[in-house]
Design a protein around this nucleic acid. Structure first.
Lengths: 168, 168
DNA sequence: TTGAATTTTCAAAACTTTTTGAAAATATAT
DNA sequence: ATATATTTTCAAAAAGTTTTGAAAATTCAA
């Protein structure tokens, strides 16, 4: 397969996978494009490659920067801004885990804390089932939280070598 | 907080969290409702509780069954079908991991296999960057795959006690 | 300063997904 | 068989999300 074709297919599929992960299609495509580009690209180059509008590129790049997946790069002598993506997939994953933990797991745990004790008859089966469900989610979340923290703090080599040995 | 209020808040929030996870709002709400209900519910009861149409309940329950999170229950002497959700949050998580692995990780790994070798000059920086990115994703995916497999096969106690001791 | 290049914003349009509800299909009791 | 209850389907409507593109804001050099 030729590079151009493979690249197009990768960008497209990364876009589809992105939608499964709560990331919008275009944002994922821009991310994919920047990951496979050896050099930083300008907004115009991204527009050109993906055939999308300036506003779209601008907003999605800003969100990628917000997620910590893309960086602004200044090229000496150039007026335009250029952008580049983190290439180390381990760092990409770590960054995504960190952000999603902050955006999703933390608020959920907060809510479980609030819903933990409901008034009323502890023997009522509905009160009981509710409390058990909330508690189960809370305990599970705390374990997940700990595990993700360690994963995020660990560096790739430590993680892969020791965890994978453990999980042989 | 009263049970009814806590329940409503839980169902609503579970719906919002669901959308972060590629699950639609209503499907997540029905799941939440069934998780906190001590007894199985009929389609009519779900319609009534969540104020949604029959078709909507029907389609989303079917999808929940498809995901292995909800089961049909037959109540002797009743004409209607009733539905109940898996209550053990560990089993819920395991089931979701299993399904998402099948729906998302497996196809991605298949694609990486196809894009692995592109024609052309191995020294060209763009060819090089592309190949390295694809390979990085492939290796990462293989590790994730192994890890998820072990998690899914392990039972809760084994997992929490030994993995969490490891991750202390 | 001024003016050209570049980036950002955001209302309206395009597109996508979800929901409704009534009709069709299926199941069950008599 | 017939009637009635129940479930399923699916086209159209509603709701939600993303994209466009032109205007406003910002940046930078002269």
């Amino acid at each position: 397969m030729k590079l151009a074709e493979a690249k197009a297919q990768f960008i497209n599929s990364w876009g589809v996978f992105g939608t499964y992960w709560g990331i919008n299609r275009t944002m994922a495509q821009i991310h994919a494009l920047l990951m496979v580009s050896a050099d930083p690209l300008s907004q115009d180059e991204v527009m050109e490659e993906l055939k999308i509008s300036r506003g779209n590129v601008n907003m999605n790049i800003r969100e990628l920067i917000d997620w910590g997946l893309v960086e602004r790069v200044l090229i000496p002598g150039e007026r335009k801004e250029y952008f580049t993506a983190e290439k180390d997939i381990w760092k990409v994953a770590t960054q995504i885990i960190k952000e999603r933990k902050k955006r999703e797991l933390d608020p959920m745990m907060k809510l479980m804390g609030q819903l933990e004790d409901v008034e009323g008859d502890k023997k009522d089966k509905d009160v009981k089932q509710f409390t058990e469900t909330i508690n189960g989610i809370k305990r599970f979340g705390q374990q997940a939280d700990k595990m993700l923290d360690v994963m995020v703090k660990a560096d790739e080599n430590w993680f892969i070598s020791s965890l994978m040995r453990f999980f042989k």
